[in-house]
């Protein structure tokens, strides 16, 4: 009798609890979907070929956002050039070479630290070192370097995880067949970890593409009459552009604001989707 009562009570509790948690999850996820759809709807009407390929007119209130799009592409590329090789190499070091000692622990703490530094502090650092001290000026170069250091921890951690996921037995077998450490890494480990590394790289670059604070004082310009053609030029960029037109330009047409937000969103989401697709396809094709 008692047990029947208790068990019925417990199951009610469980049902209530599950519903509550499910609601929490729904309330967390719904805003995400809502945000994307809202921007899609409100900004969709602004999208046209002129918008995507033209220059802004009338103090940003009309025309297109081509220089901002190109600028973001340049910055993303610039970030990739510096952070990808360095990040992957560092990940290889941590996964394949580093011993478990104080020095390695120091490196890991440094990486965790880099990951946690606020983006605006990176902006300050970039200003201090690249713009002023090294005299690069407000430039794509300075902004890319700043973004690269910010992206480094993401690339290092995801790449290291991808490398570690490759079974240790491959390394043992390879060495037992007369391979050097680098031969093993090059011929087997890197190849197998590549999809995971690529996913991490794309996610890291996606973050860099959407950042405003690090480029505020290091490379972003409000308006440039023509496209930048040297790394020492400043550039417009989508996130900065959106920030400016939504806070600093009076009588800014809402349409263009949403349109800009939509383009930025699409840019970022596309990278996200590509990364996810790479990850799931690789999982299906894995030979281990």
């Amino acid at each position: 009798m008692m047990t029947k009562f208790l068990s019925r009570n417990r199951h009610t509790v469980q049902r209530l609890g599950f519903s509550a948690i499910t609601l929490v999850a729904v309330f967390t996820v719904l805003p995400i979907i809502g945000t994307v759809i809202y921007i899609l709807v409100k900004g969709g009407s602004a999208i046209s070929w002129e918008f995507l390929s033209g220059f802004p007119h009338d103090g940003m209130r009309a025309g297109g956002i081509l220089p901002a799009i190109i600028g973001t592409l340049y910055l993303t590329l610039g970030t990739a050039v510096f952070s990808v090789p360095l990040g992957i190499a560092a990940a290889i070091y941590l996964s394949e070479y580093a011993k478990d000692n104080q020095r390695t622990r120091l490196i890991r703490i440094a990486i965790i630290n880099l990951a946690g530094i606020p983006s605006v502090v990176y902006g300050l650092f970039g200003l201090g070192l690249f713009v002023l001290f090294l005299k690069f000026g407000t430039s794509i170069l300075a902004a890319s370097l700043t973004l690269s250091i910010m992206t480094l921890p993401v690339i290092i951690s995801t790449s290291e995880e991808a490398l570690r996921a490759v079974p240790q037995s491959f390394r043992t077998v390879s060495i037992s067949l007369g391979a050097t450490r680098w031969q093993t890494i090059n011929r087997i480990i890197l190849k197998e970890a590549l999809p995971g590394i690529l996913t991490g790289v794309i996610l890291g670059l996606e973050r860099a593409a959407g950042e405003t604070a690090p480029i505020l004082f290091t490379g972003a310009a409000f308006f440039l009459p023509r496209l930048p053609f040297s790394p020492f030029d400043a550039t417009m960029a989508l996130p900065y552009h959106l920030f400016v037109i939504s806070t600093q330009v009076p009588e800014m047409p809402i349409q263009i604001q949403y349109g800009t937000a939509l383009v930025l969103l699409v840019f970022v989401l596309t990278m996200n989707v590509i990364a996810t697709v790479i990850r799931s396809r690789a999982r299906a094709r894995r030979q281990w």
């Binding site: 995400i32 945000t35 809202y38 921007i39 996610l203 996606e206 973050r207 593409a209 959407g210 950042e211 405003t212 996130p239 900065y240 959106l242 920030f243 939504s246 604001q257 937000a261 930025l264 969103l265 970022v268 989401l269 990278m271 996200n272």
Partner: peptide, 10 residues
């Protein structure tokens, strides 16, 4: 992955 400026914008 959503850029913080987009969230600020909204």
């Amino acid at each position: 992955g959503l850029p913080s400026v987009v969230l600020g914008f909204l």
